[in-house]
Design a protein around this nucleic acid. Sequence first.
DNA 1: CTTAGCATTGTAAGCGCTTACATTAACATG
DNA 2: CATGTTAATGTAAGCGCTTACAATGCTAAG
Lengths: 345, 345
Amino acid sequence: MRGIARLARELGVSTATVSRALNGNPNVNAETRQKVLETAQRLGYAANQAARSLAQGVTHSVGLMIELDQESTSSTDYFFMGVVEGMQGVLAAHGLDLLVLPCAKSQDNFTYLQRFVSRGAVDGMILAETRRIDRRIDFLQASGIPFVTLGRSDSGSGYSWIDLDFEAVMATAVDRLVRQGHRRIALTVPNNDANYGAIFAEAYRDNLVRHGLTVDETLVFPTRRREDDGDSVVDGLLDRPDPATAIILFYEVTAIGIYRRLAERGLKPGRDLSIIGLRGEDSVRFLTPQVTCFHLSLQDLGMAAARAMLAQIPMTASDVSSGVVQCRVPLSLVPGESDGPAPGG
Amino acid sequence: MRGIARLARELGVSTATVSRALNGNPNVNAETRQKVLETAQRLGYAANQAARSLAQGVTHSVGLMIELDQESTSSTDYFFMGVVEGMQGVLAAHGLDLLVLPCAKSQDNFTYLQRFVSRGAVDGMILAETRRIDRRIDFLQASGIPFVTLGRSDSGSGYSWIDLDFEAVMATAVDRLVRQGHRRIALTVPNNDANYGAIFAEAYRDNLVRHGLTVDETLVFPTRRREDDGDSVVDGLLDRPDPATAIILFYEVTAIGIYRRLAERGLKPGRDLSIIGLRGEDSVRFLTPQVTCFHLSLQDLGMAAARAMLAQIPMTASDVSSGVVQCRVPLSLVPGESDGPAPGG
DNA sequence: CTTAGCATTGTAAGCGCTTACATTAACATG
DNA sequence: CATGTTAATGTAAGCGCTTACAATGCTAAG
């Protein structure tokens, strides 16, 4: 005999009483509960997860689906740990486990998600790296399971998402550069199909227009998240009749290559080319001059997502909250010396 | 009616037949199986995870426990994605899901593990970042659950582990430096309590002794995984009567600070100080001169761990393999220009 | 003294699946 | 034709828990 039955026999009570004692049910004599808890402790008892889930129809865990990128260190990579940390903290505080589901990008991640959710393995799902069109969102919405996405998508509607406030970031960056006299501002965007790239670029265009500047798509450079791409960006930027005088970077790591290539051409960041980065990544912390960028707490981002999840999971019988949270996390500008007055402006 | 029962009724067969058909049991008419699979597909049926686990006593998933580090980007961070990718690929190919259990370092990770395993939530566990003394290993061994650790430990015995071949790395590095005429070789080690630091340092001492060099503990610098620490290392190395002429780095990112500080002092890496790094991290790829380092495929590491796991999980009824795998993954030297003949040698 | 009300515990029916064992039908063998 | 074999399916007993409902023993009220 094992599990709860063993405890019950040991104590000379029924399994129901043990279960109640263990689960904080109020209809248990305080003394009895005490004894049950002690014995459980002594015997190293832990309730079987599968049995509980089956009986309750609830797993007390939420899944986080992330995609792994075969070839390159994907953006989830550098992003990952901080966010997970934030989520885990909040969820754990509410008795929920966080299960990270790594999923090879090559695999059909839709099937993977579908299988996982249909199996009832989690009470809720968090999706990272949403695409502009993302079937997963439609599926989750149809399935009725609580979910939150990290990043907006055009798919689905009225669901909870957390995203960076790219619009505000871009407004601040463009304002700053325009005030410094820049008229031709370039941009780097990620070369993948995640939605944030599109949003970033859109905000860029909107803000140029707002300032009466012309949008030149040849000034938009898709880059990978690696410094090498900086070289070609610099050349593409300057070797033209009407060179750009400033650039806004999605991946800050690009700055490393940009700095290097500028040096090779005898140019100086902040004087000959103004550079503003997005997120204050570690990788560029040591560059001189310091890159002007925005700051973001990955933990906060994760915590926000976790809370949006909690808002949808009824924690008590009475609690039937199913609030939709849509939130853009603000970033704050951290001025460096990588930007300055437009040359000859 | 739901689940398997629904399918059964729909098809006019018993639930047992449906279950058998779905699970590839040979005792099913091929035609029947076909029909069952089709209907399952059509109805979007997926077996309830909890019910299966309860009935089979097996979860078809393995857990990977990683610790998240509040303040600093821990070593699991940069390490993580590649390894997970490798694991996930191998496990998925064998029908196993990988559940990553993030666990705040501040939390009592032992309790966390204990609870998780006792609940029977996974069929096996993989531990990252083992400590020299690690209760988790003793617990897992006592509990009888299959497990693999990433990194050796002094706790437990006869269990499966995968680790980097620090010994071989160190032998190669020291040999190379000695051949270049270096007699005073410094070392950086991680400043945390993970076991790999101790092993790295031990291998360092052993190899110095092997070459008849004296071991000077003041040449061993504990560093964090951030470039800043390079400054003090350089000063500590050179500002002494008997300066070191070479250094071996655990965290390569230290090289960034070292390069910077050397430049400030008018010195040149490879000429005035020879530097060898451990792992070929991305973060130092762009340094000039290129850092001499070792190369490691994180994917391979993850795959090795996954295979060690598989070796312990009986996949079929007949298969009762419970092999212990203890494996040191070799790294290969990638010569750069950050090392060279000892000055004045 | 009876009865209602309350606190505590027990009983037993599932939760959705797997699987040992029983059953049936079809066929080949002697 | 009786019998053994085999293939295919059904029956039903769990897996370890939760929980509605019933039962019990008390106390307080009528």
